[in-house]
Each structure stands twice: as structure tokens, then as C-alpha cells.
Design a protein around this nucleic acid. Structure first.
Length: 487
RNA sequence: GGCGGCAUAGCCAAGCGGUAAGGCAGGGGCCUGCAAAGCCUUUAUCCCCAGUUCGAAUCUGGGUGCCGCCUCCA
């Protein structure tokens, strides 16, 4: 089987071939740490977390790096607003980021480079670009000369003329520094600092890096000149990723990444979720509602990563119900293992079908990370296990042999783990529900049976309700037999 | 205005030329004193039009409607 993925660079789905066989180097454009993460950020983090997990499951050794942009205008603004330092702001939101991601079960990256920790790399890159004729100074700032880079626009598939036409209308009035630029599309590599602003020494005077340069520097420093996969939100394609390519490739003469992948935006009421529209929900607000983090994960995974995802209460509710189904399957082993051991073993004629599940899952996901397709396999397994579990509770026996069920369960758990979905058995609180012993329950069930026989349904229903409140569910079976179980 | 993407059941969503996965919600049935739980079962011809093909949701052309990017943005 071949893993294929959609490469933004070529606008085609291509077979994945890593530079070094068996190894994958991924750089994920992380966040600018000036506020809490909202669902849009969460989607990006979740999608690429699962891509990474899948590659690992597929046998690749993955080196996954995600950056923090911890110096930029917005951080500066926020710091000024709060009378805090930029370090205090970025540090606070980096910590918040880690808290949020941990709750969402996003695996830690192998490295979290930061712009402010990469100043040497940044300065080196700017110096090289200047030396090679791609950068020029203007009023203390250093700009990248877009027209010097012949293939500028190759990622977003736009021509310079088109871009200029689009930019011309607003550049003059919205950007006071525009007149300093030789071309409206030129962008700052290094910005001189105003009094009171954080600044680093450089050959161009005290200042700070522009927005795009830090990623070029961090990729190079942590992963090398050319990496396998560069991923991030679709809104970064232009200008951020385009500029990264222009910077890195002009300096190194090598391709920055073989594959570029972009995830779709989260939308609210048909519009992109964003800070400026004010229609965002932060990850922590949602989790504090509370909503099971796995519900958010499932909600995200049910839409293909490249498509926009409309965030709605209904969608969340559907995902919550769906998660319940998966959870019941995932808890099957914990719940019924003991009971199953007592069942007589039947032949394991179905053991071959296990590889079938794995194969179908891999086939779906190999096709440009179609996790939604792969989820169908998980639901199939979960529903089968739930059904068998119910049969065990209601009829005392399963249709499938315990060995096969055990394997199916393990398969489900394995596949769920690939998607970062996991359910833990709830801790026995050992309180109210444990007040009745089995004998006491039996005796109540017996009194109820007598009441029913006497057609005293008021009394029998009272006992049934009473037991239900104590977490005990009764199952009346044909022939007057009543089974019961603790919820 | 320029560039790009999407349009599949009540809702969400797979599908990549061979006759519509899955999830959610709903319908019907069995069981029951009634319930609950459970079990069984059921629900689309794919925005419109015209082509290509033995055959199209899937390819081509033309509409229509949404969305994203072109400015900070995951």
C-alpha cells in the first residue's frame, strides 16, 4: 500500500516518499502566543497530531517540530495594554497552550523552537539574503525584495502582478511604512525598534525579526535545509508560507519542503472563526463546559482535514453521541473480560477478519489521511463489541468467541490510539451505588416478582424505580425471569 | 477585481469511471402488565444544463450558490 497525500505545492495527490527512507521530518507552523487558543488552533493541532500518530503507526520514525512565535506586533500590543513585558505575555500563553493541548491529548512535539531563542539563526539568514541580493535596507528596517525571487507565488499559485493588483488598494493607507518598500509585496525581515520596545542587537541596528523569517530560521536550525512535510493552517499559505519559501530557498538554494499540507478552517455560521470577527470559542472555555476532549477530537476527525469545518452545537452533540458509542466499545475489555473468561471457548474461526479491519483502516487513511473514512472501521468494531457486551449482560452469553472478541477489542483500542482517542474505565466511586449488596438486590428483585405475580404493579414499579435510583437496572425477560446489572 | 476551493439523505460526512461508507437524528417490528434496557429492521441516485463513455456523484464545458485567500490570522 502506498501512502498518498495532497501537496499544496503541486495541487495534486502524490505518493509520499521521505527524503530518508523510514524517517519523516515535519514542521508544523504553530501559534503566535498572544492569547488563548481557540478551536481553529485546536483543529490544526489535532489534525497534525493525528497525521503524526498515523505515520508512526505506519512504521515511520517521525521528527515533529512545532514553533512558537513569541515576538511580534500583537504580543507587543498586548504587553503594552497590560503593562507587562513581552516575555510575560508569551510565557503565559505558552503555558496555557501546553495545558490545553494536554487536555486534548495532543502529543508533545519533539521540539518547540521559539523565535526569541533563534536570533542567531535569524540574523544569519537575513545577512545571507542581504549578501545574495534579496534584501535591502530602508529607514533602519530590512526588507525582502520579492521580485528578486523568480518563483515567488509558486505555493499559492499566484503571479506577482495579480498580487500587486490586489494589494495596491489598501497598502498605501493601511501601511504607513509602505513608501519605504520598493514593491508593495516586499515584507520586513528585520524591524528597527522604537524606544521602549524589546530589541536585539544586529548588524542593522537594534531591532526584532519580522514575521516570516523566524520560521525559516527555526526549520533550518532544528530540522535542516530541506524537510519532508511542512504543515499548517490554510490561511498561512499566503503570505506566510510563500514568504518562508522565498527566504529559505533564496538563502540555501534548496527546496524548503518536499510536501506542503494545509488544513481547512473552522467556521461558525458559515464564516471563518477568527479573532477579528470575534466569533471564536477558546479551547479552555469549551473544555470547561465541560465537554469531553475526545468529543472535540472526534468532531474534528469526522471532517476531512482539507475541508472547512462548521462548528455548531448540533455537530458537537452528534460527536458526543458518537463518542459514547466508541467509548462503549473501547471499554468492552475492561468491563467484560472477567465474565468472558468464564465462557467456554469456541473455535476462533474469525481471527482472520482482524487483519481485515486494519487493512481497511489503512486503506482509507493512506488516501490523503482520510480519517473520516477510517473512523467507519472503528464504529463497526465498537458497535459489534457493544452488541456482544449487551448480549452478555442480557442473555449471559456472547455470539462470538471470547478470543475473537478480545482481538477485536484490542484492534479497536489500537486504531483509536492512532487517532488519539482513548477511554479509561471510570474509577469506582464506591459510594451510593455500592450500598446494596448482591443479596439485598436479589431479595428486592424477588419481592418485585411476587408483587408482579399478584398484579400489584404499583408496588413492583416502585421497587424497580428504587433500584434504578441506586444504579441498578432490571431486565425483564420472557418467562418471568428478571436479570439485573449495576450501571 | 484576481487566485483557489466546495456543492452527496432531516443534519454532519466518505466516495477519485462500474452502479451511493459511516456518524447523528428519525420510522417500523420483537420482547413487556406498562416501561426501561436490549435485539432485529428501515430511510438518498448525488445543485442545474449540455457533453465524453457500454457505463458518471465521480471526467469535460457552461451555469447557479456558498466559502477561503489577496491585510493580522491555525
Amino acid at each position: 500500500m502506498t501512502l498518498t497525500l495532497y501537496n499544496t505545492l503541486t495541487r495534486r495527490t502524490e505518493p509520499f516518499e521521505p527524503i530518508e527512507p523510514g524517517k519523516v521530518r515535519i514542521y508544523c507552523c504553530g501559534i503566535t502566543v498572544y492569547d488563548y487558543c481557540h478551536l481553529g488552533h485546536a483543529r490544526t493541532c489535532l489534525v497534525w497530531d493525528v497525521v503524526r500518530r498515523y505515520l508512526q503507526w505506519r512504521g515511520y520514525e517521525v521528527w515533529y517540530v512545532q514553533n512558537f512565535t513569541d515576538i511580534d506586533d500583537k504580543i507587543l500590543n498586548r504587553a503594552q495594554q497590560e503593562g507587562a513585558s513581552t516575555e510575560e505575555i508569551s510565557e503565559r500563553f505558552i503555558q496555557a497552550y501546553f495545558e490545553d493541548m494536554e487536555r486534548l491529548h495532543v502529543k508533545k512535539a519533539d521540539a518547540y523552537p521559539r523565535a526569541t531563542h533563534t536570533l542567531n539563526g535569524i540574523k544569519r539568514l537575513v545577512a545571507e539574503l542581504e549578501q545574495f541580493g534579496y534584501a535591502y535596507p530602508a529607514n533602519g528596517d530590512i526588507y525582502y525584495a520579492v521580485r528578486q525571487f523568480r518563483s515567488y507565488g509558486k505555493l499559492s499559485q499566484r503571479k506577482l502582478e495579480d498580487l500587486r493588483a490586489g494589494a495596491s488598494g489598501r497598502v498605501e493607507d493601511s501601511e504607513p511604512e509602505a513608501p519605504k518598500k520598493k514593491d508593495p509585496l516586499d515584507f520586513a525581515l528585520w524591524k528597527s525598534s522604537k524606544p521602549g520596545e524589546p530589541a536585539w542587537d544586529s548588524p542593522w541596528g537594534a531591532g526584532r525579526p519580522g514575521w516570516h523569517i523566524e520560521c525559516s530560521a527555526m526549520v533550518r536550525e532544528v530540522l535542516g535545509d530541506t524537510i519532508d512535510l511542512h504543515v499548517g493552517g490554510g490561511d498561512l499559505m499566503f503570505p506566510h508560507h510563500e514568504n518562508e519559501i522565498a527566504q529559505s530557498e533564496a538563502a540555501t538554494g534548496k527546496p524548503l519542503a518536499h510536501y506542503w499540507m494545509h488544513n481547512g478552517m473552522v467556521k461558525v455560521g458559515g464564516e471563518k472563526m477568527s479573532k477579528s470577527l470575534g466569533n471564536f470559542t477558546t479551547v479552555r472555555d469549551l473544555l470547561d463546559k465541560p465537554i469531553d476532549p475526545m468529543v472535540i477530537r472526534l468532531n474534528v476527525l469526522q471532517t476531512h482535514y482539507r475541508k472547512p469545518l462548521d462548528f455548531t452545537d448540533e455537530g458537537l452533540e452528534a460527536a458526543a453521541n458518537g463518542w459514547n458509542t466508541l467509548k462503549e466499545g473501547l471499554l468492552f475489555g475492561y468491563q467484560y473480560r472477567e465474565q468472558l473468561k468464564q465462557q467456554s471457548a469456541v473455535s476462533n474461526q474469525q481471527s482472520i477478519s482482524i487483519t481485515n479491519y486494519l487493512r481497511r483502516f489503512a486503506e482509507a487513511v493512506d488516501d490523503d489521511f482520510n480519517f473520516a473514512g477510517g473512523l467507519a472501521v472503528l464504529f463497526e468494531l465498537a458497535k459489534e463489541l457493544r452488541r456482544e457486551g449487551n448480549l452478555l449482560v442480557h442473555q449471559g452469553k456472547t455470539e462470538t468467541s471470547p478470543e475473537v472478541l478480545e482481538k477485536q477489542w484490542q484492534t479497536l483500542v489500537e486504531l483509536a490510539q492512532v487517532l488519539g482517542l482513548q477511554a479509561q474505565p471510570e474509577e469506582e466511586t464506591g459510594e451510593a451505588r455500592q450500598h446494596l449488596s448482591d443479596e439485598e438486590v436479589e431479595s428486592l428483585v424477588l419481592s418485585r416478582a411476587e408483587a408482579r405475580k399478584a398484579k400489584n404493579y404499583a408496588e413492583s414499579d416502585r421497587i424497580r424505580d428504587q433500584l434504578q435510583e441506586l444504579g441498578i437496572t432490571l431486565i425483564d425477560q420472557p418467562g418471568g425471569l428478571t436479570r439485573w446489572y449495576r450501571n
